[in-house]
Protein backbone atom coordinates (compact mmCIF):
# COMPACT_ATOMS: atom_id res chain seq x y z
CA UNK A 1 0.00 0.00 0.00
CA UNK A 2 2.98 2.25 0.52
CA UNK A 3 3.21 2.29 -3.28
CA UNK A 4 0.24 4.63 -3.59
CA UNK A 5 1.08 6.74 -0.58
CA UNK A 6 4.57 7.15 -2.07
CA UNK A 7 3.06 8.46 -5.28
CA UNK A 8 0.79 10.79 -3.35
CA UNK A 9 3.65 12.05 -1.19
CA UNK A 10 5.88 12.45 -4.21
CA UNK A 11 3.40 14.56 -6.11
CA UNK A 12 2.56 16.60 -3.03
CA UNK A 13 6.16 17.45 -2.23
CA UNK A 14 6.90 18.27 -5.85
CA UNK A 15 3.96 20.67 -5.94
CA UNK A 16 5.10 22.25 -2.69
CA UNK A 17 8.50 22.85 -4.21
CA UNK A 18 6.99 24.31 -7.33
CA UNK A 19 4.80 26.68 -5.33
CA UNK A 20 7.86 27.99 -3.51
CA UNK A 21 9.80 28.68 -6.69
CA UNK A 22 6.64 29.99 -8.32
CA UNK A 23 6.29 32.56 -5.59
CA UNK A 24 9.87 33.65 -6.13
CA UNK A 25 9.24 33.90 -9.84
CA UNK A 26 6.26 36.20 -9.38
CA UNK A 27 7.93 38.47 -6.84
CA UNK A 28 11.41 38.40 -8.33
CA UNK A 29 11.12 41.79 -10.02
CA UNK A 30 10.88 43.48 -6.64
CA UNK A 31 13.40 41.39 -4.70
CA UNK A 32 16.10 40.89 -7.30
CA UNK A 33 19.47 40.69 -5.59
CA UNK A 34 21.46 41.46 -8.71
CA UNK A 35 23.06 44.91 -8.61
CA UNK A 36 23.38 46.77 -11.90
CA UNK A 37 26.79 47.77 -10.70
CA UNK A 38 28.48 50.50 -12.69
CA UNK A 39 25.08 52.11 -13.34
CA UNK A 40 24.12 52.48 -9.72
CA UNK A 41 27.53 53.28 -8.36
CA UNK A 42 26.22 56.38 -6.58
CA UNK A 43 23.33 54.71 -4.81
CA UNK A 44 24.80 51.25 -4.27
CA UNK A 45 24.73 50.29 -0.58
CA UNK A 46 26.66 47.19 0.40
CA UNK A 47 24.96 45.01 2.98
CA UNK A 48 25.91 45.24 6.61
CA UNK A 49 28.01 42.09 6.94
CA UNK A 50 30.03 42.78 3.81
CA UNK A 51 33.78 42.36 4.28
CA UNK A 52 35.51 44.81 2.01
CA UNK A 53 38.67 45.75 3.85
CA UNK A 54 39.87 46.33 7.39
CA UNK A 55 39.57 49.95 8.47
CA UNK A 56 40.31 51.85 11.67
CA UNK A 57 37.60 54.39 12.47
CA UNK A 58 38.72 57.77 13.74
CA UNK A 59 36.67 60.35 15.61
CA UNK A 60 36.42 63.97 14.53
CA UNK A 61 39.25 64.87 16.93
CA UNK A 62 41.49 62.42 15.04
CA UNK A 63 41.38 59.87 17.84
CA UNK A 64 41.39 56.11 17.37
CA UNK A 65 40.95 53.25 19.83
CA UNK A 66 44.06 51.20 19.04
CA UNK A 67 46.41 50.73 21.99
CA UNK A 68 49.08 48.90 20.04
CA UNK A 69 48.60 45.64 21.96
CA UNK A 70 49.48 43.70 18.76
CA UNK A 71 46.88 41.02 19.37
CA UNK A 72 45.64 41.45 15.82
CA UNK A 73 49.12 41.09 14.43
CA UNK A 74 49.51 37.78 16.25
CA UNK A 75 46.06 36.56 15.27
CA UNK A 76 46.46 37.22 11.60
CA UNK A 77 47.30 33.97 9.79
CA UNK A 78 48.85 35.75 6.82
CA UNK A 79 51.04 38.37 8.39
CA UNK A 80 48.85 41.03 6.88
CA UNK A 81 49.13 43.41 9.81
CA UNK A 82 52.36 44.95 10.94
CA UNK A 83 52.30 47.26 13.92
CA UNK A 84 55.19 49.63 14.24
CA UNK A 85 55.09 50.83 17.80
CA UNK A 86 56.86 53.26 19.97
CA UNK A 87 57.09 54.26 23.63
CA UNK A 88 55.78 57.58 24.70
CA UNK A 89 55.25 59.38 28.02
CA UNK A 90 51.72 59.34 29.28
CA UNK A 91 50.86 62.94 30.16
CA UNK A 92 48.38 62.08 32.92
CA UNK A 93 50.55 59.67 34.88
CA UNK A 94 54.01 60.49 33.64
CA UNK A 95 54.75 56.81 33.00
CA UNK A 96 56.26 55.34 29.88
CA UNK A 97 53.63 53.72 27.68
CA UNK A 98 53.37 51.73 24.42
CA UNK A 99 51.60 53.44 21.54
CA UNK A 100 51.30 52.82 17.82
CA UNK A 101 53.33 54.67 15.34
CA UNK A 102 52.01 53.05 12.19
CA UNK A 103 49.32 50.38 11.78
CA UNK A 104 50.41 48.84 8.47
CA UNK A 105 47.81 46.78 6.64
CA UNK A 106 48.68 44.87 3.45
CA UNK A 107 45.32 44.54 1.71
CA UNK A 108 46.89 42.35 -0.95
CA UNK A 109 47.60 39.65 1.63
CA UNK A 110 44.33 39.82 3.53
CA UNK A 111 41.89 36.93 3.13
CA UNK A 112 39.08 38.78 4.91
CA UNK A 113 38.95 36.08 7.58
CA UNK A 114 38.06 38.57 10.28
CA UNK A 115 40.25 37.09 13.02
CA UNK A 116 41.93 40.42 13.69
CA UNK A 117 38.61 42.14 14.18
CA UNK A 118 37.32 39.40 16.46
CA UNK A 119 40.43 39.43 18.60
CA UNK A 120 40.81 43.17 19.10
CA UNK A 121 39.96 43.91 22.75
CA UNK A 122 39.11 47.56 22.10
CA UNK A 123 37.09 47.35 18.87
CA UNK A 124 39.67 49.54 17.23
CA UNK A 125 39.33 48.02 13.77
CA UNK A 126 36.25 46.95 11.82
CA UNK A 127 35.02 46.05 8.37
CA UNK A 128 34.88 48.72 5.69
CA UNK A 129 32.32 48.61 2.89
CA UNK A 130 34.62 49.64 0.07
CA UNK A 131 34.99 46.98 -2.61
CA UNK A 132 36.58 48.90 -5.46
CA UNK A 133 40.10 47.86 -4.62
CA UNK A 134 41.65 47.44 -8.02
CA UNK A 135 44.77 49.55 -8.51
CA UNK A 136 47.48 49.83 -11.11
CA UNK A 137 50.35 49.57 -8.63
CA UNK A 138 50.21 46.93 -5.95
CA UNK A 139 52.30 48.94 -3.54
CA UNK A 140 49.25 51.18 -3.06
CA UNK A 141 47.54 48.20 -1.45
CA UNK A 142 49.79 48.59 1.58
CA UNK A 143 48.03 51.08 3.77
CA UNK A 144 48.65 52.82 7.05
CA UNK A 145 45.37 52.68 8.88
CA UNK A 146 45.98 55.24 11.62
CA UNK A 147 45.80 58.76 10.29
CA UNK A 148 48.87 60.98 10.66
CA UNK A 149 48.95 62.76 13.98
CA UNK A 150 46.14 60.68 15.44
CA UNK A 151 46.13 59.86 19.14
CA UNK A 152 44.63 57.24 21.40
CA UNK A 153 41.16 58.02 22.59
CA UNK A 154 40.94 58.74 26.32
CA UNK A 155 39.57 55.96 28.51
CA UNK A 156 40.01 53.10 26.08
CA UNK A 157 42.51 51.34 28.30
CA UNK A 158 40.56 51.60 31.54
Amino acid sequence: MSYFSDIYKGIKTLLTGMSVTGKYFVTSRKGAITQQYPDNRDTLQMFERFRGEVIMPHTDDNEHRCTGCQKCEIACPNGTIEIIWDRGIDEATGKKKKKIDQFVYHLSMCTMCGLCIDVCPHDAIKWGQNFENSVYDRSTLTRVLNKPGSTLMQGVED
Binding site: Y24, S28, R29, A32, I33, T34
Partner: peptide, 10 residues
Protein backbone atom coordinates in the same frame (compact mmCIF):
# COMPACT_ATOMS: atom_id res chain seq x y z
CA UNK B 1 15.43 35.19 -18.24
CA UNK B 2 13.01 32.75 -16.61
CA UNK B 3 15.86 31.05 -14.76
CA UNK B 4 17.03 34.43 -13.53
CA UNK B 5 13.60 35.32 -12.24
CA UNK B 6 13.29 32.00 -10.43
CA UNK B 7 16.60 32.68 -8.73
CA UNK B 8 15.88 36.32 -7.86
CA UNK B 9 18.31 37.57 -10.45
CA UNK B 10 17.72 39.84 -13.43
Amino acid sequence: RVAAWFQLRI
